[in-house]
Nucleic acid binder design. Structure first.
Length: 436
RNA sequence: GUGGGCGUAGCUCAGGUGGUUAGAGCGCCAGGUUGUGGCCCUGGAGGUCGCCGGUUCAAGUCCGGUCGCUCACCCCA
């Protein structure tokens, strides 16, 4: 152990032995299946990017936690902390040639250098889904629908999770209505973001002190965040054209989601802000209803990012959903699937004489697409049956001298224990196994 | 980066006030005769008690440090 300690896993990184990989793959499969169901195609990019890609694009927060270093060619590089900048770069090069809207998804492994804690490691896999080239809220709704359906595919329902949606432009318009100068908006966002993590006390004071808001305005804002509804915002600020316009967008967005059958999963909530600097419209986060975990998913509209990276000015909306928090939620909800090894058949040679025949039978079955195993050296039949059981074999094919002489083999159903005699020729031809 | 909790076999854990060869269950390996698994029985391997140092005649047990895990803060993919 002490010897091993010097070459131990790096903190915040995971190994994936078969059981863990099975959990991961199950999640990935759900993500891919749902992405394709909505007509999205998969892409990927390099895990290592130029540091420059993240500076100024993602905001200070993320840059401070980059896994970065100088490579042997004296280049400043960073392991990707998020996928969106890479996507923006990729599209900057080829978006002009692509039919819009572009529907792409990816499952990159992302990295960040920070102390790990529950739901946050230094590495994770994140499902990214983006629609690029469509400014209408229809795209916003589509993206959130994909995310929610991905979670549904894993067994989570509206009683388990909720998407809280907000709009940065709406929030900004409300601040303007309250005469909060643009320079103070980030400070207000900061306070709102913190509200969600139990920082309700002192929020009013911070809005006044840090953001310079009038006491009455601060109270109105906090009240709206806690008891907000589209109707309430409209009744208070609906006479402002910008507010009215954003409320119209929000209404269209929510009704799209409703039409998609996801109304129960969605909740208007001005308390959602999102940390990344590049969001420019509707933003959302998906949480577990019990709020015992951090956000499972976060995303929103980022209409200016592509041109920031030198591409064609295209509107875009997308989200990222990490595998770590999601796996914790699935575990909590009892939705994790137990890992079980499984093969179609295990070929047993009753005596060493049948060993080569066992290999031939296995080869024939494998050629037909079956998953087949057998003992790598001579063992007692008893032992081989145990091996078959622990390999998760659906069937055990017993090759015994007596039967083989008559061209027959025994095929035993490992679950029921029933054994029947099958002609060797039939087995080789793909007949005789349950699903053959 | 800051603070709290924890660190004994692969896993889950026992090991009053320091005292001979550190234990259990599960798992793993090998057997339980002549060709049949899942139960059961027998045997076995596996731990420098995270690491380093200190106190002591004697430390898994006390003290300090360190690393790791974990929770919270910071912050947030």
């Amino acid at each position: 152990m002490s010897e091993a300690a010097s070459v131990a896993r790096l903190p915040g990184f995971r190994d994936f032995p078969p059981e863990a990989l099975a959990d991961r793959e199950r999640i990935f499969e759900a993500w891919r299946r749902v992405s394709r169901r909505y007509g999205f195609v998969e892409y990927d990019g390099p895990p290592l990017e130029s540091l420059d890609l993240y500076i100024r694009k993602s905001g200070e927060e993320i840059v401070g936690q980059l896994y970065e270093f100088t490579d042997k060619g004296d280049r400043q590089v960073a392991l990707r902390p998020e996928m969106t900048p890479s996507l923006a770069r990729i599209l900057a090069e080829r978006s002009r040639a692509l039919p819009k809207p572009i529907r792409w998804f990816s499952i990159p492994q992302l990295f960040r250098y920070e102390r790990q804690q529950r739901g946050r490691l230094r590495e994770h896999f994140q499902w990214n889904v983006d629609v690029v080239g469509e400014a209408d809220t229809g795209a916003d709704a589509e993206v959130l629908a994909v995310g929610l359906d991905g979670l549904r595919a894993l067994g989570l329902g509206a009683e388990d999770i909720v998407a809280r949606v907000s709009d940065r432009l709406l929030l900004t318009a409300l601040l303007e209505a309250e005469d909060v100068p643009p320079g103070s908006h980030p400070a207000v966002f900061q306070v709102i973001d913190k509200l969600d993590r139990g920082g309700a006390e002192g929020a009013g004071a911070r809005l006044r002190d840090d953001a310079g808001m009038a006491a009455s305005a601060a109270d109105r804002l906090l009240d709206l965040i806690q008891e907000g509804s589209v109707e309430r915002v409209r009744s208070m600020y609906g006479d402002r054209p910008v507010v009215a316009g954003r409320l119209e967008a929000m209404t269209a967005y929510l009704s799209d989601l409703d039409a998609l059958g996801l109304g129960d999963f969605v909740q208007f909530d001005l308390g959602i802000v999102r940390g990344l600097a590049y969001y420019t419209g509707i933003v959302f986060e998906i949480f577990d209803r019990e709020r015992s975990l951090r956000a499972i998913c976060g995303g929103g509209r980022y209409d200016r990012l592509l041109e920031l990276v030198g591409g064609e000015p295209l509107p875009a909306v997308g989200f990222g959903m990490g595998d770590v928090v999601l796996a914790e939620l699935l575990e909590e909800k009892g939705l994790r699937r137990e890992y079980r090894a499984s093969i179609d058949a295990f070929v047993i040679a009753a005596s060493p004489k049948e060993h080569h025949l066992a290999l031939e039978v296995a080869a024939a079955l494998r050629a037909r697409g079956h998953d087949v195993s057998y003992a790598l050296r001579s063992h007692t039949v008893r032992k081989q049956f145990k091996m078959a059981a622990s390999a998760g074999a659906v069937a055990a094919i017993v090759l015994g001298p007596r039967e083989v002489e008559e061209g027959m083999v025994g095929v035993r159903d490992m679950r029921s224990g029933e054994e029947r005699s099958v002609a060797l020729a039939d087995l080789r031809a793909g007949r005789g196994l349950a699903d053959g």
